[in-house]
Design a protein around this nucleic acid. Structure first.
Length: 592
DNA sequence: CAGGACTTAG
């Protein structure tokens, strides 16, 4: 056997690649059943331990997404796995998303004293990223150095993407900067790395750098770039991308099309999103879901339902994400009966098990519409597991909205007992106490928060003016025109007050920190961005703002007044949906 | 013997 090892691959392929059995494997392709039948034949004919045949069989088995138990047994039936086998298994498993298998083979390969190549390294780095096995990835990064592949373009691009996926964008950028030859893929990895970590602005800036250096973008670049545009509301650049891909005859495939649709919906133009949707040839479930969610975001519940029905009729099968989208569309449009119906359909006709997200949608939908008892009943009926904190949070939101303080306090206290480390719950509890007039308790909760140094997520708003994105956070003074902006905002707000706007009282503010309270009222990031936008654009130009958190009541009211005072259309996208302000009212009809 | 980056919800 030992003498067989080594040269055997070449000698056997010459004979076996022409053998009928090898041919039948090729014919079977990536289909599990036929492959298993051939496997049986191989065993019967006594070739069951022939490496080349089993290797080919295994590669198709992975492409066919076969059960791990089967592929493992195939692997273990091979007496002396060689370099070729390991390399193909590692690249295949990583490509077909069996990351744990990929790492397992890597380990066995190391144990067998077989060295890695740039092919295997880039594959196992991707697998570590997919598995979120961050320390393993770092270890492999060390192996890469030791084995001298530190400058391989494929390996480096994989590392960029690995560090980005593990949330360490700075390190990703460091690896990227060190690359001597930056391939398009490397640029794409870095751009998408920024985008996926919420750094849309940086993603866009990197794209501009890429343009400046004359690197030709491809369809992947645009997919990530469009996501970044969607994130920060950069409609100017988004439209430019659309024109660019049309002018350069890019194939509008589903992925690019969906990214484009998503950009348009999230930048405020649903009808344009629909145009793109209609022009995409092979729509998959992701494209349909994106369109449904686009309608939902804009409060167009009935259009969302219409599209959903159309899809059930002759479209792909809806998945969990689709149901989150459609249920949340119902919630934001107040379509309670339809939502209940769809929830039932989801379980009965599609056999899907509602997840936490769906439960949140239902509680939110019932709660918003004022069916507090039904919502509470729904929460209590959740079994077999205890309802998730997110579900209770939705319930709490409903209590607050409909001013049911007794239930609200009960829910908030329960929430704190199951998730004491979440600062958001303290803020909610403190707000509920404040609304109920229990100022003694408000102070108590705030003190706990200050003691714990709890900080909630920092809010910011972005605005796109002349193809450039500006970012504002609360009380922000980093902008060169700061004084002018603040002065203008103050003037604007006093004119709003003259027109009847009453600022929310301090006790209902979401902020807890002392220094934040001072700025809280007037200088929420969306107000700053709007003031900036009004200053920078001419009359009649609509203002588009994107906010990372949900809008507060006070801003919502204030912006309605601003739309009258400044005589402008103002569109604000908050974390969940759009608000189109015009002539003193909002498209959400105060239902959000 | 062979490869990567990318779209939907909250």
């Amino acid at each position: 056997m030992a003498s067989f090892h080594g040269n055997q691959t070449t000698s056997s392929t010459t004979t076996l690649t022409h053998s009928p059995i090898y041919h039948s494997i090729i014919l079977a392709g990536p289909r599990l059943k036929p492959l298993q039948q051939i496997h049986a034949r191989i065993i019967i004919t006594g070739l069951g331990r022939t490496r080349s045949l089993i290797t080919k069989l295994l590669s198709f088995a992975y492409a066919a997404a076969s059960p791990i138990s089967y592929t493992r047994s195939l692997f273990f039936s091979i007496p002396k796995p060689d370099t070729f086998l390991f390399h193909s298994l590692i690249t295949l498993t990583s490509k077909f998303s069996f990351p744990q298998e990929s790492l397992l083979y890597y380990r066995r390969m190391l144990l067998a004293n077989i060295s890695s190549s740039n092919y295997t390294f880039s594959a196992v780095i991707k697998s570590s990223a997919d598995l979120m096995a961050f320390s393993i990835g770092e270890t492999i990064h060390c192996h890469v150095y030791i084995c001298g592949y530190g400058l391989d373009a494929y390996v480096q691009a994989a590392l960029v993407s690995f560090y980005a996926k593990s949330g360490r964008v700075m390190i990703a950028r460091k690896v990227f900067d060190k690359m001597p030859d930056k391939t398009v893929v490397a640029w794409n990895s870095m751009i998408s790395g920024y985008e996926q970590n919420g750094f849309g602005k940086e993603a866009i800036e990197l794209f501009y750098l890429m343009q400046y250096l004359g690197v030709k973008p491809d369809s992947s670049t645009f997919v990530s770039l469009l996501s970044a545009c969607a994130q920060v509301g950069a409609i100017g650049l988004g439209c430019w991308v659309h024109e660019y891909i049309a002018r350069n005859c890019f194939d509008l495939n589903v992925v690019l099309g969906t990214a484009l649709m998503n950009m348009y919906s999230r930048c405020g133009n649903v009808s344009k999103a629909r145009e793109v949707f209609d022009s995409v040839e092979e729509k998959n479930i992701v494209a349909w879901t994106a369109m449904i969610s686009g309608y939902g975001m804009h409060g167009h519940g009935s259009q969302a339902i219409e599209l959903f029905n159309e899809m059930s009729f002759d479209g792909p099968r809806p998945n969990n994400v689709t149901f989150v989208a459609i249920l949340s569309a119902c919630a934001h449009a107040g379509l309670v009966d339809e939502g209940r119906q769809i929830f039932t359909t989801m379980k009965q006709e599609y056999g899907l098990v509602p997840s936490v997200e769906h439960q949140v949608c239902m509680v939110d939908m019932l709660g918003r519409a004022g069916h507090l008892n039904e919502a509470y009943q729904f929460v209590k009926n959740i079994s077999p597991k205890e309802p998730a904190p997110a579900v209770w949070t939705a319930m709490l939101g409903a209590c607050k909205m409909h001013k049911n303080f007794d239930l609200g306090v009960e829910v908030a206290e329960h929430l704190l007992s199951i998730e004491p480390e979440n600062p958001g719950h303290y803020v909610m509890l403190s707000n509920i106490y404040a609304l109920a007039g229990r100022m003694d308790r408000v102070e108590k909760v705030r003190n706990i928060m200050i003691r714990n140094r709890s900080k909630k997520e920092v809010g910011y708003s972005t605005i796109d003016v002349d193809h450039k994105v500006y970012l504002f956070s609360m009380g922000d003074k980093s902008h060169p025109k700061t004084n002018q902006i603040y002065l203008y905002l103050d003037e604007l707000m006093s004119r709003c007050r003259e027109a009847g706007y009453i600022p929310a009282s301090e006790s209902v503010m979401h902020e807890v920190e002392e220094e934040e309270r001072e700025y809280a009222l007037r200088y929420h990031s969306e107000k700053l961005a709007i003031a900036f936008g009004l200053l920078k654009t001419g009359p009649g130009v609509a203002i588009r703002i994107v906010k990372n958190l949900r809008m507060c009541e006070d801003c919502h009211t204030a912006i309605k007044y601003i739309s009258i005072i400044a005589n402008r259309e103002i569109n604000v996208r908050d974390r969940l949906r759009f608000h189109h302000f015009k002539d003193g009212s909002c498209s959400c009809q105060d239902y959000w």
